[in-house]
């Protein structure tokens, strides 16, 4: 299946990465090459094969319901781009 320029713009938007048209065209060429490689997978008959999501066949461990964290927000917020009154500031969110 051939990737289109429109696809590049759509996924770049979903991924929140700004791309200009010229850049998108260049990326399209590279992605088409990579998808050429990826398409090799389609030749394999995988009917009846269970997908493998994890390297080990183990199940989720559960944590005890205990408060184990203390307030570190001054430290965490010392590396934040913009904070005020303990809040992270972002451009206005419109609902």
């Amino acid at each position: 299946m051939a990737l289109s320029l429109e696809d590049v713009h759509r996924i770049a938007y979903l991924a929140r990465i700004a791309v200009q048209d010229a850049e998108a065209r260049q990326v399209l060429g590279q992605l088409q090459g990579i998808f050429g490689l990826i398409e090799e997978m389609q030749a394999v008959d995988t009917a009846g094969i269970a997908p493998m999501a994890h390297a080990q066949d183990v199940t989720q461990r559960l944590r005890e319901d205990r408060v184990a964290e203390t307030d570190q927000h001054p430290l965490f917020q010392s590396v934040a781009p913009q904070v005020e009154a303990g809040l992270y500031l972002v451009p206005k969110v419109i609902e």
Binding site: I17, I38, M41, I49, A50, P51, M52
Partner: peptide, 25 residues
Amino acid sequence: LIGTYVLSHGYYDAYYLQAQKLRRL
């Protein structure tokens, strides 16, 4: 971008799931 594409609607089975099955093989 590759990752976003292979997970996006309509492509998941053909790419992601197929790759996970290959992973098993």
